[in-house]
Design a binder for these strands. Structure first.
Lengths: 183, 183
DNA sequence: GTCTATACTAGGATAGAC
DNA sequence: GTCTATCCTAGTATAGAC
């Protein structure tokens, strides 16, 4: 994907994650990108749905680079978990920005977008579980904690939005850290 | 509110919580309720927005009855927390049904609906904190735990949706219970 | 690769009969 | 209190010039 197109996709992603799939119109996208509707169809012949699926795939690629990779990089479990938490905190603006995957999972009920978003959330939990298993934590317990960590991240984002403050998200992240590093 | 109207509101609530505000059309509501569009305007002169706000106020009333009341009713903190968890598990179909408040908080960005939904989520965390304070837990710690419990509930719902299973939600509720009952 | 212009449909809302 | 019919706007999408 060209650099310019990646920028366009990024702008569109920020619309979808804040307002959901149905809450964003082509007019919104046109205004935010500065491109006319027809130009958008040049880049995304499949229309709005292709815009959204492209956005999700870029998110998948970002997760790989900024979340999954740190989870395997550090030289201790603690540094791996902290690496993920640091990346995640950045991605979500310290709790101020909603999660694209959660947004699409909820707004596109039963559609292919929701299915793909769900798949990535499951993959996320799985990657965390793998990091724990590599430290000798038993399979089922690792899986349980991975899912719990993702739940804390997502719940932290929702409560942060409700409180209009990054504090709940940060507390949730601290709790996730404790859960993941517990002996 | 008449019984019949409460039933209509209930049907509409189930649409909004699954698809968000923008994902539901008047046609959808007409089909789900069996009422023509004009009949809907007879019940809700303010249109779609009034339908949604009515739905939210019914949710507020349900929370009072089924969530906040149990939180003050039991004869021990443990029974109060268990009462809330039991109610919440019922409301969300064991993790299968999304939260209306979270749905509207996310889809109606900065609108009055999102503001009211956020207010109710904050109130929820506050009510939990009050229950803890009544047991002698220090103010700030009680507040922290209340918010964390709400985050676990909301995050549990999202992960349950992603996994298409009630299991993540139930694990999140068990964790919330542990957090709230910790000495 | 972007634009103007234009279909066409769906969505929200109203009028007025019964 | 519900219906049919209608209006109007916004939304998705396409055609075709530059």
């Amino acid at each position: 994907m060209s650099n310019q197109k990646a920028e366009i996709v990024d702008v569109i992603a920020n619309l979808f994650r804040r307002r959901g799939y149905d809450g964003v119109s082509l007019g919104d996208i046109s205004a935010a990108t500065g491109l006319g509707k027809s130009s958008l169809y040049h880049h995304f012949p499949g229309g709005k749905e292709e815009m959204a699926s492209t956005v999700v795939e870029q998110a998948a690629s970002n997760m790989q680079a900024f979340v999954f990779t740190p989870l395997m990089a550090g030289d201790s479990l603690e540094s791996r978990i902290d690496g993920m938490i640091s990346s995640v905190t950045g991605i979500y603006g310290g709790g101020d920005d909603p999660c694209l995957l959660a947004s699409l999972l909820s707004s596109d009920e039963n559609g292919p977008l929701a299915e793909r978003a769900g798949e990535l959330i499951r993959l996320w939990a799985d990657r965390i579980a793998n990091a724990l298993r590599a430290e000798g934590i038993e399979r089922k317990e690792a899986r349980r904690r991975g899912i719990l960590a993702v739940a804390l991240i997502q719940g932290g984002l929702i409560t942060s939005k409700a409180f209009d403050s990054g504090e709940p998200f940060k507390e949730a992240m601290a709790t996730a850290r404790t859960v993941l590093l517990a002996r």
